[in-house]
């Protein structure tokens, strides 16, 4: 299966020469196998993804949560406006409102001119929680993780390959940080032994304490999570909008001085083949 990253920026899209290398679009990735296509999150990166998936009649969009940086691009995903397409949107269940109702808050006036119920494609919504389900050749596990509001991460499996997608996650929330026992680590089941783990690493170690509770990880906590879960390779993502390419590379270099886990910075446009 082929993983492509369409947006790895956190919080708000950025543009300009300082963020050109790692990219300024917000969260979106795709996982493809044959004609089957999964799209992970609908941040601004999904706009370009839409133009690249004309071969698939059915497209499944898996939303981790409904913060704006994960749904802002949905209305610009061209297959939504193609009557020949069958689009399935999967997202975390809430205890109070339906997924349709929550997405419609954004995809409705005055924030957006077209109502979700009026998009021309064949649209179906599915709510997930701590679930395991199949889409085409993929087996998918979703679990609630620590992040404000209903939020899930996804473990995508095909044959023996595993790609885990947890772009927004604060497993270290607590007075003493992450509890270093797998049984007590949010998201552990999703990431255990993954071939590739994409994980939130928005902050430096120094930035994190004044942003505790915002739902994101320091690069050090992301590395610790990767180590505890024995992920084989980890992509640090959800880059802070204030972090330039040069700053991100300094963060990574500093992290690598104290850790030997296999990591890299997630980069918009990059592809990973899991074969």
């Amino acid at each position: 299966m082929k993983v492509k990253l369409w947006g790895v920026r956190g919080s708000i899209p950025t543009s300009g020469p300082d963020t050109e290398k790692y990219g300024g679009n917000t969260s979106c990735a795709s996982v493809a196998y044959g004609d089957h296509l999964l799209v992970l999150d609908g941040g601004t990166g999904i706009r370009q993804c839409g133009g690249a998936c004309s071969a698939s009649n059915r497209i499944d969009i898996l939303l981790t949560h409904l913060h704006l940086d994960h749904i802002q691009g949905l209305g610009f995903f061209s297959p939504l406006f193609d009557p020949s397409k069958e689009i399935h949107i999967w997202g975390p269940a809430s205890s109070s409102q339906s997924l349709f109702s929550r997405i419609s808050r954004y995809l409705s006036p005055p924030l957006f001119p077209v109502l979700l119920r009026d998009v021309p494609c064949k649209l179906e919504l599915h709510e997930v929680s701590n679930s395991v389900f199949d889409i085409g050749p993929f087996r998918i596990q979703s679990s609630y993780i620590i992040h404000p509001g209903p939020t899930v991460g996804y473990r995508i499996m095909r044959e023996n390959f595993v790609f885990t997608y947890i772009p927004d996650h604060e497993p270290a929330l607590g007075s003493h940080g992450m509890i270093q026992n797998p049984k007590w680590v949010s998201g552990y089941d999703l990431a255990e032994g993954a071939d590739v783990l994409l994980h939130d690493a928005q902050y430096t170690k120094e930035e994190y304490p004044i942003r505790r509770g915002w739902g994101h990880s320091s690069i050090n906590d992301a590395g610790l999570f990767a180590s505890i879960t024995s992920a084989k390779h980890t992509l640090f993502a959800h880059h802070d909008p204030s972090h330039s390419d040069a700053f991100l590379e300094e963060m990574l270099a500093s992290f690598k001085l104290s850790s030997d886990v296999s990591v890299a910075l997630a980069m918009e446009g990059s592809e990973i083949e899991l074969t």
Partner: peptide, 18 residues
């Protein structure tokens, strides 16, 4: 090893602060 649900983990983290 199956991890606890986050509602349990967050209760522990809260208890740890009290």
């Amino acid at each position: 090893m199956a991890a606890h649900e986050i509602e349990i983990i967050l209760n522990r983290q809260l208890a740890d602060c009290l």
